[in-house]
Computed example of a mutant assay.
Amino acid sequence: MKKGALLGTLILVFTLLAATFTGAKALYETKSVPTGDRHNISEIISPSSKWEKVISGGNGRFMEGINFDRKGNIWLVSPMTSEILTIKNDQVVKVLQDQQNLMPIGAKFHKDGRLFITDGKGVLYSYNPTTGKLKTIINSYDGKPLKGLNDLVFDKNGGLYFTEPMGSSATNPTGRVFYLAPGAKEAKLFSENIAYPNGIAISADGNRVYISEFNKNQIISVPSATAPASPEAAFVFGRFEGGIGPDGLTVDAEGNLYVAHFQAGEIVVLDKDGFKYGTIRLPQDAGTFVTNLTFRDGYLYVTESSKNEIWRIKVETKGLQPYWLQ
């Protein structure tokens, strides 16, 4: 090897090592040990805050995928009835129903106004509320059909993460998560060997992807596709007791993670380091099938799918600005 080439290689190696060291220092920097409890749920909700029932969606549905459009209208999906739904004049209104092909489970708005939908039959769709058109975005990976999809989230650049849990379980952890880069036509495999990857969210700084490992009752954190070089690897971010597992996720502006704990009838709140504030338990007359959640105007909105109801509660924190409002 020529001297100039060797020198260039050494400079590159030292640069990479310096960048890694800087990342490691930031990652493993020590913090003050708290003298008392780290958190209390009163930091998230006032003791005087009460749950309010927003609406009941009727029998037969399994309402989830709650979203707000730019006008403040609530949008939902129901896989059991193959419906895309919205709320008008305090009534749940069917926008689209396709009982032959549609099994919508997750939904998120793109900032161009389209509603992206994950389907339990293995298709990522976009729905245009203006034209009423449903379009297939992705239905395969590496030349093979995708298995059933569940949830999705956009990053700040418009890249899309989506989960593929169908067929996986605690004893068969074959679930996968994919990433569709902005403008890309093919998805890339982001993470695999997960026991039913359900809900998904992105940390406030964009460097972590939180994945609900539903059938192991835990949240895992994976460095995002756009995270800078760092020694951080995928790790267990939070574990839970009771219920079945974590479903939908959302993040507030301070980086706290809100977890819809399915079959537990509660929301679990963790800080950005994975320490728990506590739980926000739904009222006694609500069901325990807590599926999805989102923020709007100082409230945390939650779907409970056994009784097909939407509940909300006033919170002290502000939701992280979603991609569609950026």
Score class of each variant (00 low, 15 high):
K2I: 11
L6E: 12
L6R: 14
L6D: 15
L7D: 12
T9R: 13
I11F: 13
L17F: 12
A18P: 04
A19L: 15
F21G: 10
K25V: 14
A26C: 15
I44Y: 00
S46F: 03
S49V: 02
S49K: 05
W51F: 03
N59A: 11
F62A: 01
M63L: 10
E64S: 06
D69I: 08
I74C: 07
L76P: 07
K94H: 13
K94C: 14
M103L: 08
P104D: 02
L115M: 08
V123M: 10
L124D: 03
S126V: 08
G132D: 05
K133D: 15
L134S: 11
L149H: 09
N157E: 15
T163P: 09
E164A: 13
E164S: 15
G167T: 04
V177L: 14
V177Y: 12
L180W: 11
K188Q: 07
L189V: 03
N193T: 15
I194P: 08
I200M: 05
I202V: 14
I202D: 05
N207C: 04
I211R: 01
S212R: 01
E213I: 09
E213K: 07
K216Q: 11
I220P: 08
S221A: 15
A225R: 12
P228L: 02
A229F: 08
A229H: 09
S230L: 02
P231E: 12
P231F: 05
E232F: 02
E241R: 10
G242L: 05
G243Y: 10
T250W: 02
D252T: 00
N256L: 02
N256V: 01
A260E: 01
F262M: 07
G265M: 06
I267D: 00
D271T: 00
D271K: 00
K276V: 08
L282I: 09
P283H: 08
A286P: 08
T291K: 01
L300S: 04
R312T: 04
R312M: 05
L325E: 04
